[in-house]
Computed example of a mutant assay.
Amino acid sequence: MASITFKGNPVTLVGKEVQVGDQAPEFKVLANDLSEVSLENSKGSVRLISVVPSLDTGVCDAQTRRFNEEAANLGDVKVLTISMDLPFAQKRWCGANGIENVQTLSDHRDASFGEAFGVLIKELRLLARAIFVVDSENKVTYVEYVSEATNHPDYEAAIEAVKAAK
């Protein structure tokens, strides 16, 4: 398993670590309108999955804004941001920040995504910061488990991975 810290303290990740070359595991999360969303909903598209602990924190805010900007130039790529935030909070945050190119999804109900992708922090019931790129055939082509949850991911590497998966 990836070794992750949160504010310098080691945490336990629940679930199986996803590797490049794996078939992306299925999951069920909630959209801002409370409808259920799964990996199957974006089948046939390249997906950049940006995982954040909470949109209401500085690094998560910056990460989501960055991928929102990048999404405008990526063409037919689905950019998903997944957190444990409630769908209502995600919708409010997106509206207040002009986020239109990223779909925010909530894993608060079942932690289905967190367990499937090995990013559920047992001690906090938050998701660890991570980036996954999944190609149009559901193969994982890029993985970054950010070692310190309060640090930024490697944005450039993630964007290059998306371009390579197209």
Rank of each mutant, 00 (worst) to 15 (best):
A89I: 12
D110G: 08
L86T: 11
I121S: 01
A116S: 14
F88Y: 14
A96V: 09
W93P: 05
E100D: 15
S112G: 04
D110M: 04
F117D: 03
A111V: 01
R92A: 12
W93Y: 14
S106W: 05
G118P: 04
S112Q: 00
K91M: 14
F88A: 10
I121P: 03
E123K: 07
V102Q: 10
Q103C: 01
F113D: 03
G98Q: 08
F88V: 03
D107F: 00
L86V: 10
K91D: 15
F117L: 09
S112T: 03
A89D: 12
A116H: 03
L105V: 04
E123R: 04
A111R: 09
L120P: 08
P87G: 00
L105H: 02
R109E: 15
E123N: 03
V102L: 13
E115Y: 02
V102F: 12
C94D: 15
G114K: 06
D110A: 10
C94Q: 14
C94L: 12
G114A: 02
P87T: 07
F88Q: 07
V119L: 02
C94R: 10
Q90M: 14
T104P: 12
P87Y: 13
D110E: 15
I121F: 06
C94T: 14
I99S: 08
G95M: 11
V102K: 02
H108E: 13
I99Y: 09
S112E: 07
F117E: 11
K122V: 05
E115D: 10
A111Q: 01
G95W: 06
G98N: 15
A96R: 13
Q103T: 14
W93S: 03
P87R: 12
G98I: 10
V119Q: 00
I99F: 02
G118E: 10
Q90P: 02
L105Y: 06
S112L: 11
G98T: 01
N97R: 10
G114Q: 01
S106A: 09
Q103D: 15
H108L: 15
F113R: 04
R109D: 15
A116R: 02
R92F: 11
V119P: 01
F113N: 01
D85I: 08
D110H: 05
G118V: 03
R109N: 04
A96G: 07
E100M: 09
R109K: 14
V119A: 00
P87L: 13
A116V: 04
Q103A: 11
Q103G: 00
R109L: 15
A89M: 13
S106L: 08
S106E: 07
G98K: 07
R92S: 11
G98M: 07
N101Y: 08
L120T: 00
Q90Y: 07
E123V: 00
L86I: 13
K91L: 13
K122D: 15
G95A: 10
L120K: 07
F117K: 00
V119M: 03
H108C: 10
K91C: 11
V102M: 11
